[in-house]
Design a protein around this nucleic acid. Structure first.
Length: 526
RNA sequence: GGGCUGCUAGCUCAGUAGGUAGAGCAACGCCCUUUUAAGGCGUGGGUCAAUGGUUCGAAUCCAUUGCAGCUCACCA
């Protein structure tokens, strides 16, 4: 309280402090996240991953060791054929089997679950996320959870009582805290018949009516249902922190029951928080994986650089819903980030409180080390115009920036790629233009207009004799007024000739930016 | 029915370890009797949903109410 050091109030730091406070001093803190790879992992799922990454980094920044585990819950059942998969008829036949036994009809990997996992594992390092992956199907099938399953069986009544507290319909009399995949069909259409009090479980395959007794220690078929599986793994891994979506965090939701059931396994519920869903703005496609067309981290990285991508999540409290925009908001997000960077480097003033906050956001937004020099500061909107003037030629754009430093080039290139993707794919039609070339058909003009264009070309040819763009702009009007052409008609025809549209960026500045080498060949055709 | 979140400028939203209400867009004005402005500078605009409480001080904390949204009570 009395120290004058500013304590970070960033949510990641606050949660890191909370973990240390509630869990005590430890050699290593285990932070966990996970998901069922039953479909494309979308940007909403990414929120959990990045939330854990940020808290883990906050703990490390406090000098703590952190184990960041990411659980692929890939021993789940294939319930529904996703719409974005080829060969749905083939996949139909695999319903009710574990998703690791379903073929990947996209040809990405040996099986469907692995295909979805690989998509994520390949991209996460690019945004600075490097967890230790745990594969639950492999663990279950290797009988690593035999003791956990036995413990659940031993405490069946206790677990049942906890679950029943929140259910509208109590669990049936013959309920068991496990489920079994049939060794005959691989499907989970099975009924547990008996447990011998040790490791022997007898089940019936309801499709074939075959019965079998399996040993939990050396057969791969049994698993725990989600509400029991989760707390069992908390206990086994000693999870100190794991956030969850609001669906888990409602009263009676799985976090609620898990924090009770974990005691059966001799563990303690981790520190957690609820994160809200995110939505998409400015492009088609839903975020949910069941609809087929989903927005993934790959899609976001088309338009946002890795730092920007982190920045959006860093700067928003996790329990707040927000939209990832692909519309004009993209400009604002980039400009907000640049402002944040300027404040960090002291290029823009801010009061102490704001500076501390923005600086922390900047640090946490970085993929790796924090840069020692700021990026080349250029308004994103202007960058978009430069790219369009040069038809997306990034090298040509950078060549026009004579004050750019070597250390800034790579970062700017990365940004140009995203900007160009955005312009060509998502920007509104009004925003786009393409400078005419020699191949562009000349537009039809009246004699008067032709005279004006020639006069303009004359002025452009000696544009360097003007003191600045403004003086050039003022003089430009005489091209029209000298011959009594309405100035508005004049501008219209010039824009038409240059970019094929009736309006555009403020003309004088625009012509200056393009340079006479680009403008004269166009105008001289009239 | 339970839980959670939100309600701040015309619009979209920042802002909660309590300390003089902010930004972007829109509007308006000027640069400019010189575009149908994608430029620059500037201006105006708010009983922070309502009521009550705690406090020297509340958008912020507490309670109640209203409205809106999400979520759980199937599965995971």
């Amino acid at each position: 309280m009395s120290n004058n050091k500013i304590v970070s109030t960033h949510w990641a730091d606050i949660n890191a402090d909370k973990i240390i406070r509630e869990r005590g001093e430890k050699d290593c803190y285990t932070c966990a996240s996970g998901i069922t790879p039953s479909g494309t992992v979308h940007i909403g799922n990414f929120r959990e991953i990045i939330s854990v990454e940020l808290v883990a980094r906050a703990l490390r920044d406090k000098g703590k060791n952190v184990r960041f585990i990411y659980s692929w819950d890939d021993y789940d059942v294939f319930r529904k054929v996703p719409k974005n998969m080829p060969e749905p008829e083939l996949l139909e036949g695999y319903l009710r089997k574990p998703i690791t036994l379903v073929p990947d009809t996209l040809g990405r990997a040996d099986n469907y679950a692995r295909g979805n996992e690989l998509d994520v594992e390949k991209i996460l390092p690019s945004v600075g996320v490097n967890p230790e992956y745990l594969y639950q199907a492999a663990r279950y099938r290797d009988s690593e959870y035999a003791e956990g399953i036995k413990t659940a069986l031993e405490h069946k009544d206790e677990i049942k009582a906890i679950l029943n507290e929140f259910r509208t319909q109590p669990l049936p009399e013959d309920w068991w805290p496990i489920s079994v995949f049939s060794s005959f069909t691989d499907k989970d259409n099975t009924t547990i018949l008996a447990w011998d009090g040790e490791y022997g479980v007898t089940y019936r395959d309801d499709d074939t009516n075959q019965e079998e007794t399996i040993d939990l220690r050396n057969t791969p078929y049994a698993k725990l249902p989600w509400r029991i599986d989760w707390p069992m793994r908390w206990s086994r891994e000693g999870v100190d922190f794991e956030p969850a979506g609001k669906d888990h965090h409602s009263e009676g939701g799985s976090f609620d029951t898990s924090k009770r059931i974990v005691e059966v396994f001799g563990g303690k519920a981790p520190v957690s928080f609820q994160y809200d869903f995110i939505s998409i703005k400015g492009r088609g496609g839903k975020i949910s994986s069941s609809s087929g067309e989903v927005i993934s981290l790959y899609d976001v990285l088309e338009v946002y650089t890795p730092e920007l991508c982190r920045y959006m999540f860093v700067g928003t409290r996790p329990n707040t819903e927000f939209a990832i925009s692909f519309d004009l908001d993209v400009l604002k997000i980039y400009e907000d980030y640049d402002k944040c960077e300027r404040i960090y480097f002291g290029l823009q003033s801010a009061n102490d409180k704001k500076k501390a906050k923005e600086s922390r956001i900047y640090e946490l937004s970085q993929v790796k080390d924090i840069p020692t020099t700021p990026s080349y500061q250029i308004p994103f909107r202007h960058l978009c115009n430069l790219l369009q003037i040069h038809s997306g030629d990034i090298e040509a754009v950078i060549a026009t920036l004579d004050d750019i430093e070597e250390s800034q080039i790579e970062r700017l290139k990365q940004r140009c790629v995203c900007a160009w993707n955005w312009i060509t794919t998502f920007s509104p039609e009004d925003f786009r233009f393409a400078l005419a070339t020699e191949d562009t058909p000349v537009v039809e003009v009246t004699d008067k207009e032709r005279t004006a264009i020639k006069a303009l070309a004359e002025k452009v040819s000696k544009i360097e004799t003007y003191e600045n763009a403004k003086e050039f702009g003022n003089d430009m009007y005489s091209c029209a007024t000298d011959i009594e052409l309405e100035t508005s008609d004049f501008f219209k025809i010039v824009y038409k000739a240059l970019i094929g549209k009736e309006k555009g960026p403020k003309l004088a500045q625009f012509i200056e930016t393009c340079g006479k080498d680009k403008i004269l060949p166009i105008l001289s055709r009239y």
